[in-house]
């Protein structure tokens, strides 16, 4: 059903979930490309501060972009999508396979030892 529905309604702001059931983020932007046959093809799902800022205003996007320079934005190729249902986009691989949500692992790696009770 979702395959025939609109991109805006079913992909944008949808919950990205690894095959292990762990939530990693929400889709901030969708990248599409005209292929040589003249068809518009979806390529990647984008997450990150710059993609989000573009959703809010172009001025904010420029300001933020001059600082972040896209360093914190991550994408997932659409081929990795296993299923889309009810605004939950389930991916083929486990959550730690993807760049999106890497901050979670980065924080866990750096801070687990520092914070009491975090090792559990």
């Amino acid at each position: 059903m979702a395959r025939t529905n609109g991109v805006m309604r079913n992909l944008l702001d949808g919950q990205l979930r690894g095959s292990d059931g762990v939530d990693i983020g929400r889709v901030a932007d969708v990248e599409a490309e005209w292929d040589p046959d003249g068809r518009l093809v979806l390529r990647r799902l984008w997450c990150g501060p710059d993609a989000l800022a573009r959703r809010v205003s172009s001025r904010l996007a420029r300001r933020l972009g001059s600082i972040t320079r896209g360093r914190f934005d991550r994408s997932i190729p659409v081929e990795e999508i296993e299923s889309i249902g009810d605004l939950v986009i389930t991916l083929r691989g486990p959550s730690d396979r993807y760049e999106v949500g890497r901050s979670e692992r980065w924080l866990a790696h750096r801070l687990t030892r520092l914070l009491p009770g975090a090792r559990r």
Binding site: V22, G25, R26, A108, L115, G117, R119
Partner: peptide, 13 residues
């Protein structure tokens, strides 16, 4: 923001 959340999950998750 779609982060993994929950009080009863392991903290590092």
């Amino acid at each position: 923001f779609g982060w993994s959340s929950g009080k009863d999950k392991p903290k590092r998750r």
